[in-house]
Design a protein around this nucleic acid. Structure first.
Lengths: 113, 113
DNA sequence: TAGTTAAATAACCACTTAGTTTTATACACG
DNA sequence: CGTGTATAAAACTAAGTGGTTATTTAACTA
């Protein structure tokens, strides 16, 4: 994956308001005002957050009269997860206290990822 | 997980230099100068990046005479992955074009996570 | 046409970030 | 002791972020 895209994705996730917006979008499309409602924050602030999420590829938007419904776009989330997956075996091994076996396991290529 | 901790973790990951440092640390401990070597950047800049990674709980540091060896601390990476895992089933379903089944699957709680 | 609603844009502010250079600290070695 | 080495800290700068209020655009409604 393009490093700039990962930058944008992780940066977008590094904000609790934006993570809450994504969580909300898991249960379906929502308009900007619907998304803004739970927050003690102005509408333009939410629009800015949405622009960040859109630029990161995490949401996309449609058109319904005046409304611009947002929906979750999970591909970028998958890309971030894929990046993190490269570390998964590391911490799993480490949690078993088997650091010394890490390289053996890696060279065998024997996990299910 | 504490939201501030997730903030710090994702923010730390949103920088290619820091991700490269983490990748380097996968193959074992390294000193600040060793970590700085591949980058066209001053030593204090790397020290700052390491402080960000340390504050995010992604690395910890020891002491060996003048050296402050850094090692990967995978717990924070695991926490970030766990957060993203809540979205995994969503995109997996979506990729199969089975959006309409998402809520059924969720309410059954029937995946292996 | 005028009024209302939904959202974006503009202009601004305080704070943070990522880098710099310079200086200081801590330790090892002769 | 003084010198080199490894790292951190200080002070600064340019650019980015996250919020505000006020304004504008676009579309529906009466």
């Amino acid at each position: 994956m393009n490093p700039d895209a990962l930058d944008a994705t992780f940066a977008a996730l590094a904000d609790p308001t934006r993570r809450a917006i994504l969580a909300r979008l898991r249960s379906g499309e929502a308009t900007v005002t619907e998304l803004a409602a739970p927050f003690a924050m102005s509408q333009p602030a939410i629009s800015k957050h949405l622009k960040v999420l859109e630029r990161a590829g995490l949401v996309s938007r449609g058109r319904d009269a005046q409304r611009r419904p947002c929906r979750l776009e999970p591909a970028a989330l998958k890309a971030a997860t894929d990046w993190l997956a490269d570390y998964r075996e590391f911490w799993e091994v480490r949690y078993q206290g088997l650091d010394s076996l890490l390289h053996d396991i890696q060279s065998l290529g024997g996990d299910e990822r």
